[in-house]
Amino acid sequence: MQISLTVNGRPYTVDVEPRMLLVHLLRDVLDLTGTNVGCDTSQCGACTVIIDGRAVKSCTVLAVQADGTDILTIEGLAKDGELHPLQEAFWNNHGLQCGYCTPGMIMTAYYLLQTNPTPSEEEIRHGLEGNICRCTGYHNIVRAVQEAAQRM
């Protein structure tokens, strides 16, 4: 099936199998491998991207369902070589170790700060509930989101 969508500001028209997941379209067809597959069961959140302004786990969406949408992935966050405040804040606060969950964490945090620019610590922890990190214990991720909220 032919679908058209915009990813990180760039328009694409691609032929996809009806059963293809959005995350595989992004990774295998569009070669945007920054979005990771962590669990294959929609629990870990590593594949989170922004679809039409909302954070979505891209392994729960068929590529054909994304027809006509505007998608933002981790590759599209930095502008003109300038890191996004969330990326800076994750770097500054040691909000990652292996980095595998980080693209999903950052995209979910991006959506959180779009909807709630000044979240409390509890609201940040609640907002990131769908994203699993096995390295950091979450404390530094929360600190990173707090710093980004101040800078944005």
Partner: peptide, 12 residues
């Protein structure tokens, strides 16, 4: 190593 990891350029 963080710049590659936070921008999606890291290769797993």
């Amino acid at each position: 190593e963080d710049p590659a990891l936070i921008t999606g350029r890291a290769k797993y």
